[in-house]
């Protein structure tokens, strides 16, 4: 902000200091719950609650993590979640691109009609039960497909992507590719997509995180435990206080020890299930500005 000519007065300096102090305190408040969970997950379960706040792991231990490896529900859930997320996101991006690209083309006949056709769904929906009945009629309840196909398209994301294409792919480029004899399909593959890494990365993040974090669809559409994604297992562990298949061993004198192990499992499983998202985050983060911001303003 106008550094060269700007000479801060006293009031301005006070403003800056106050602003930064408040923001740093705020950031620490946002961050602390996450730090607490990470610390607790590496702590010795008998010592976690010696004092209320954990600033570092107390009595280092990996028990919580070894406990995860012994829990079949979590492992299967993790595998299922990876499958649903990867397949689902690929379908999401394909369907979104196939809608966004034609709509971004200058002079695309029927653009107005198609746009209205899509946007209506942003304001009106059938609701829970009618949607459930559709999936039931399609016969995809309790199958992999119900986790992939419904929700394949977010109209909001499609409009973001269309706007990105419009603003970042010069129409001269498209015209000259035409002159060189490329068809619409080749244009999409060879010209548009290679220029659209930022928006595709951002879309992959949005859709992917949504898929990875969703428990609702799995809860209402899946009945077989072997198909449950991680979030549904997490719900049992974190919200309902159940521990899947290890809980049968909870008998007699070993129970106190078991209870403690389960306590650390709660923390370690939070870390493990959030890690994939947080690893992906820095990779995509640099595209946020280009991807979202460009699209969002004039969306």
């Amino acid at each position: 902000m106008a550094k060269a000519i700007y000479k801060p007065g006293k009031a301005d300096k006070a403003f800056d200091v106050a602003n930064i102090v408040i923001l740093i305190v705020f950031t620490l408040i946002v961050l602390y719950p996450i730090i607490f969970v990470v610390n607790a997950s590496f702590s010795d379960p008998t010592k976690i609650f010696d004092t209320p706040l954990l600033l570092w792991p107390r009595g280092f231990s990996l028990d919580g993590y070894t406990e995860i490896l012994k829990n079949k529900d979590i492992l299967v859930g993790f595998k299922n979640a990876v499958i649903y997320t990867v397949l689902g996101t690929v379908v999401n991006i394909a369907v979104t691109t196939l809608g966004a690209y034609p709509l971004s083309r200058k002079g695309f006949e029927g653009k107005g009609f198609f746009t209205i056709f899509f946007t209506i769904t942003m304001f009106f929906s059938g609701g829970l039960i009618p949607t459930y009945l559709v999936n039931q009629q399609l016969g995809i309840v309790n199958t992999l497909w119900v986790m992939i196909l419904p929700g394949a398209l977010s109209v909001y994301n499609m409009i973001l992507m269309r706007t990105y294409f419009q603003q970042n792919i010069p129409s001269e480029l498209i015209e000259s590719a035409y002159v060189d004899g490329a068809n619409d399909m080749q244009l999409l593959w060879k010209v548009v997509l290679p220029l659209s890494t930022p928006i595709i990365a951002v879309m992959a993040m949005f859709y992917g995180v949504g898929r990875w974090n969703d428990y609702f669809n799995a809860m209402i559409y899946l009945q077989d435990r072997s198909k449950f994604p991680l979030q549904l297992i997490l719900r049992e562990i974190l919200v309902q206080g159940q521990f899947g298949d290890t809980s049968q061993a909870l008998i007699g004198s070993a129970s106190a020890q078991m209870m403690l192990l389960k306590l650390t499992l709660k923390y370690s499983v939070v870390v493990v299930s959030t890690l994939p998202v947080l690893l992906f985050y820095p990779v995509v983060q640099k595209y946020f500005e280009k991807g979202i911001m460009v699209g969002a303003i004039k969306g």
Partner: peptide, 10 residues
């Protein structure tokens, strides 16, 4: 980016 299940757990 944290799931609701984990938010409620936290």
């Amino acid at each position: 980016f944290i799931s609701v299940v984990i938010i409620v757990g936290m």
